[in-house]
């Protein structure tokens, strides 16, 4: 296709790169909105945490583990009724955002949890000794102190989601991964597949580089 219709191919790549960005960034955002509070709650309710609550910790931990156990392809199908309920349809690019977000949220929760666990216990103790409320500790101490590590974790999430989003083709979604499957794999158009893969490599490199730079800038240690 590249050789017979280069302009068509270019437009296809532009459109599907846009679709990939759209799916990945919206679902990352939603995953952070869902996963971040869960990650924080997991840290503060653990043994010795600032709001110790072992029961809640166990329940949330189990839910997160269940969420992470589902293979993504199964999750897309299992979530179809739910997707239809909130998007109005269970197929297409926008519809893919629902399973992508749900798949990424527990991952984000664990990423945030492990980043915040790295915060020096002494700093938290100092904040308590100064009379901070648990909320102040979360907002002014835990998140800012863990920010550099959180950024790296979110970068990891975005890159994972680029991989997952390739499966969007299963439910008629678009994106770069879908080109590789639809044109490259099903139609044996290897030139298209190779270009797609090169584009994905560049995209992943770029995102990792941006993530690393932001994390480095945030890290005052």
């Amino acid at each position: 296709m590249i050789f017979e219709n280069p302009i068509g191919a270019l437009l296809l790549f532009l459109r599907e790169t846009g679709n990939t960005f759209y799916m990945v960034f919206v679902s990352t955002l939603i995953a952070i909105i869902i996963g971040m509070p869960i990650g924080i709650i997991l840290v503060i309710t653990e043994k010795g945490g600032i709001k110790e609550n072992l029961k809640l910790n166990k329940v949330l931990g189990t839910i997160v583990n269940i969420g992470r156990s589902f293979p993504f392809a199964i999750l897309i199908i299992a979530l179809m009724p739910f997707t239809r309920l909130i998007i109005g349809t269970s197929i297409g690019t926008t519809a893919t955002i629902v399973p992508l977000s749900i798949a990424a949220a527990p991952f984000v929760a664990r990423v945030i949890e492990s980043s915040i666990k790295e915060v020096d216990k002494g700093i938290i103790e100092a904040a308590i000794a100064m009379g901070s409320t648990p909320w102040e500790i979360i907002i002014k101490v835990l998140i800012p102190e863990a920010m550099s590590s959180i950024i790296l974790g979110i970068t990891l999430t975005i890159i994972n989601l680029i991989g997952y989003s390739a499966m969007a083709g299963l439910v008629g979604g678009g994106g770069l991964g879908n080109i590789a499957i639809q044109y490259g794999y099903y139609r044996y158009d290897f030139s298209l597949m190779i270009v797609t893969i090169i584009l994905l490599i560049i995209l992943v490199q770029l995102i990792q580089w941006i993530g690393n730079s932001i994390a480095k800038k945030m890290n005052k240690k």
């Binding site: 020096d120 002494g122 103790e125 100064m130 102190e145 005052k220």
Partner: peptide
């Protein structure tokens, strides 16, 4: 209160 390892906020 002051501490052996200072416990300052690194991000500030």
């Amino acid at each position: 209160m002051i501490f052996q390892h200072f416990n300052l906020l690194n991000s500030r």
